[in-house]
C-alpha cells in the first residue's frame, strides 16, 4: 500500500467517524429498526459501512443522550429484538446536523467549482 493510499484511507475513516451520528439519525428518521437491520442498511453503502463493535456502543450513547428510544419487541417465535427509533430530541438533532452537513458540502462544492487563477469571492469577515 502506498503512502497516498494510506492517507486517503485515514481521511475516509475520519470522515466516516465524524458523520456517523448524522448517518444513524438519518437512517432512523421516521423508521424503527433493530441493530442487525440497521447494521445491514449501513453496510450496504460504501461510505457508511461500520462494524458491530462501532454501532452498538454508539446506539447505547445516543440512547443515553435521549436522542434514541429503544424497545424490546418479540414477534411470534423469533427471538426478541431491540428496536430503535428517534425521540423528539433526536429529530431536532437530526435537523441541526443536516444543516451543518449541507452547509459543509455546499462550501466545499463552491471551492471545487471555483479554481484559480481567478480570485475567489470572499464574503463576510
Amino acid at each position: 500500500m502506498t503512502t497516498d493510499d494510506k492517507t486517503q484511507e485515514k481521511w475516509e475513516v475520519q470522515l466516516r467517524k465524524g458523520s456517523l451520528e448524522l448517518v444513524i439519525l438519518a437512517a432512523l428518521q421516521h423508521r424503527t429498526l433493530y441493530g442487525l437491520e440497521l447494521l445491514k442498511v449501513l453496510q450496504s453503502f460504501k461510505s457508511t459501512a461500520i462494524t458491530e463493535g462501532t454501532l452498538y456502543p454508539l446506539l447505547d450513547r445516543l440512547k443515553r443522550e435521549q436522542l434514541l428510544d429503544a424497545q424490546w419487541v418479540q414477534e411470534g417465535d423469533i427471538r426478541p429484538r431491540k428496536y430503535y427509533s428517534l425521540t423528539a430530541a433526536g429529530l431536532t438533532k437530526l435537523g441541526d446536523l443536516t444543516s451543518l452537513w449541507r452547509q459543509s458540502v455546499q462550501d466545499i462544492e463552491y471551492l471545487l467549482a471555483h479554481p484559480g487563477p481567478d480570485p475567489i469571492k470572499v464574503t463576510g469577515a
Binding site: 441493530g35 442487525l36 458491530e52 452498538y56 447505547d60 427471538r79 426478541p80 429484538r81 431491540k82
Partner: peptide
C-alpha cells in the same frame, strides 16, 4: 441489557 442485545444479534445472524 448490553449482553442480551449482542447475544440476540449474534444468534439472529
Amino acid at each position: 441489557e448490553v449482553i442480551r442485545e449482542i447475544e440476540s444479534h449474534i444468534f439472529d445472524l
